[in-house]
Each structure stands twice: as structure tokens, then as C-alpha cells.
């Protein structure tokens, strides 16, 4: 073996083992089930506090995480070394697979029911137009999130489970993930303006 070959073998031996990537963290599923059951109960009971809680907490977390990932984590991630990026991605993305759809479901389902309960959807209500604009903003975000962001997230995780993950594919998909998270994050600012407007009319 040449010196270079021996050095490479030592690097392989010393490099930390790749983290086991689990596409859907099974341990988180009961928490998701509890949250979904709570949202269903809140809608079925038309329970003001629970609907407000689900909408405000879900929406606040959704907005904050989108902005934080798109504008803070994303640019930092882009400057990390490839192994550091891979290790971060392997630990970060499975959590997003469960967290974001749950927050979105919680926010939208509770928000729609809340608007209906409070009469904000009635044509004569001063908030009606604002809510239609918020539907449009959420609609654009939903198409981006469901059509681009989430498939990229799942594809990265599946790629990382392979014996020989393709770095180019992961890089391409992560770039897509971070850019779309940034776009939806910026659109969340519009949602914040609309929602604070609705709450104070």
C-alpha cells in the first residue's frame, strides 16, 4: 500500500460512522397522533380556546421555523463542509418530516374552523377579504411545500439511507429544500401581516 493509500485507509477507519437515517421517526408518531386527535376534538366541539390554541401555536411555530430554516440555518448549512452538512441533514430532516405537516395541519384546520365560528368568513364581515387573501398566500405556500419542499426532504433522507449516497443528488435536493423554505418563510411575513390585521379589526 502506498503512503497515500495508507493515509486514506486511516481516514476511513477514523471517520465517525454515518448516523442511521430513519425517514420517519417512529417515536414521534404517537405525539403526532395526539396532536391530530386534539385538533379533531377542537373542531368537533367547536371549542374556542382549543381552536385558538391550535391556530396560534401551530401558526407561530410554522412561521418561525420556516423563517429560521430558510434565512438562518440554510445559509449556514451552505457554508459547512460536506461531511458536516451530511451529518446535520441526517439528524435534522427526519424531524422536519413529522413536524412541519403536523404544524400545517394544526394551523389550517383550526384556523378555518375558527374563522367560521367567529363569522369572519361571512361575505359582509370586514375580515372576509383579508381571509381570502390569506387563503391565496397559504395556497401558494401549500403548493411549494407539498410539491417541491416535502418531496425534496423525503428524497434526501432516502438517498442518505443508501450504502453509497450520491453527494450531488443530496446537494441538489438540499439546495431546493433551503430555497423553497426561504420562499415560504418570506410568504409567512405576508401571513403575519394579514393575521395581525384580522385579529385587530
Amino acid at each position: 500500500m502506498t503512503d497515500v493509500g495508507r493515509m486514506q485507509a486511516e481516514v476511513v477507519a477514523q471517520s465517525p460512522p454515518r448516523p442511521q437515517v430513519q425517514v420517519v421517526p417512529v417515536r414521534g408518531l404517537p405525539i403526532v397522533a395526539v396532536v391530530v386527535a386534539f385538533v379533531i376534538a377542537a373542531i368537533a366541539g367547536n371549542w374556542l380556546w382549543a381552536l385558538t390554541f391550535c391556530h396560534v401555536v401551530g401558526g407561530g411555530l410554522w412561521t418561525a421555523i420556516d423563517l429560521f430554516v430558510g434565512l438562518i440555518v440554510g445559509p449556514i448549512l451552505g457554508r459547512l463542509s460536506v461531511p458536516a452538512r451530511a451529518e446535520f441533514t441526517a439528524r435534522f430532516m427526519p424531524k422536519m418530516v413529522l413536524l412541519m405537516p403536523t404544524l400545517v395541519l394544526m394551523t389550517l384546520a383550526a384556523g378555518f374552523q375558527l374563522a367560521l365560528r367567529e363569522g369572519n368568513l361571512l361575505a359582509g364581515n370586514p375580515n372576509h377579504a383579508w381571509l381570502i387573501v390569506s387563503f391565496c398566500v397559504v395556497g401558494v405556500m401549500a403548493v411549494i411545500a407539498l410539491g417541491v419542499l416535502e418531496p425534496a426532504n423525503i428524497a434526501v433522507l432516502v438517498e442518505m439511507r443508501k450504502a453509497n449516497p450520491d453527494g450531488q443528488v443530496i446537494g441538489l435536493l438540499m439546495k431546493r429544500f433551503v430555497y423553497t423554505a426561504g420562499i415560504t418563510g418570506l410568504m409567512q411575513v405576508a401571513t403575519l401581516i394579514i393575521m395581525t390585521r384580522v385579529a385587530t379589526q
Binding site: 476511513v12 454515518r18 453509497n164 449516497p165 450520491d166 443530496i170
Partner: peptide, 14 residues
């Protein structure tokens, strides 16, 4: 070099 790193270096035909 880890699998991830080597994959990043060799590129991705897929």
C-alpha cells in the same frame, strides 16, 4: 473518506 464524501466527490449520474 466516508461514503457521503466520496459520493460528493465522484458526482451523480442519476
Amino acid at each position: 473518506m466516508s461514503d457521503t464524501v466520496s459520493a460528493a466527490v465522484t458526482g451523480a449520474p442519476a
